[in-house]
Design a protein around this nucleic acid. Sequence first.
DNA 1: ACCCAGGAAATTC
DNA 2: GAATTTCATGGG
Length: 270
Amino acid sequence: MITIKDIKDFNAAQTLDCGQAFRWKELSDGSFKGVAFGKAVTIRIQDTDLIIDGTDENDFQAIWRKYLDLDCDYGAIRKSLEGIHPILREAAAFAPGIRILNQEPWEALCSFIISQNNNIPRIKGIIERLCQSYGEQIDEESFAFPTAARLAALEPDALAPIRAGFRARYIIDGARKVAGGEIDLEAVRKMEINDARRELMKITGVGIKVADCTLLYGLHRLDCFPLDVWMKRAMSVLFPEMTPEDFGEYGGIAQQYIFHYSRMHPELFP
DNA sequence: ACCCAGGAAATTC
DNA sequence: GAATTTCATGGG
């Protein structure tokens, strides 16, 4: 168990259940259990401390510190975003404990392929079945996210029990292009944004939205501003005079504040 | 029976 | 080329 004293700008529910990651489950005591980088942990806030259960100092330094983006000053970023628009200030104040995770690139890519024309509970179910079937087992109930190489060896029809529907062939195409080296996600991380998008969109089933989600959530490109149905509604209703570019170098964080705020206030969108 | 869901490909105009 | 339809599945 690891304790990080006096944690700022972090809320487990807001960060782990705001639609950016699909593998965290809230337990009855309000903590969250999940898996990343092949390790299972439970995360909770106790008073002003962040507690990570099921880990040690080694893995905290190697995995969780980066995964939870703990070295980033979200208070300062939020302050800089607040001046952009009063509604953005309100959205950020609504969930100031959101952070953008550093998820595994392939997991983010694959997860957002699955997300298309789908709803969040069902996305979680498909991903869970995918992990149980093809991921490495970690403990009694936890499985790692399957590697691209493992999935690349399958035919789309083999995924039928996963019930991913028409997305099965997209998953396999992505797995093959990543595992085969045709797409190098660590190279994509460093590319100019439009080159990065074009590279990811070589995968059948990856358009601009899935590409932007991969860049933001998997490759930590904080200037990416994915436009899904919720964000398109939010832009037209709440920010009719603004474009994604207007939100600047931390637009991706702004996007997450706005996405979560909009989902929690559906009455704003008749 | 219908509609929608963190879209994108396939088809049609 | 831009607009529309289809894609697989499950819940409301």
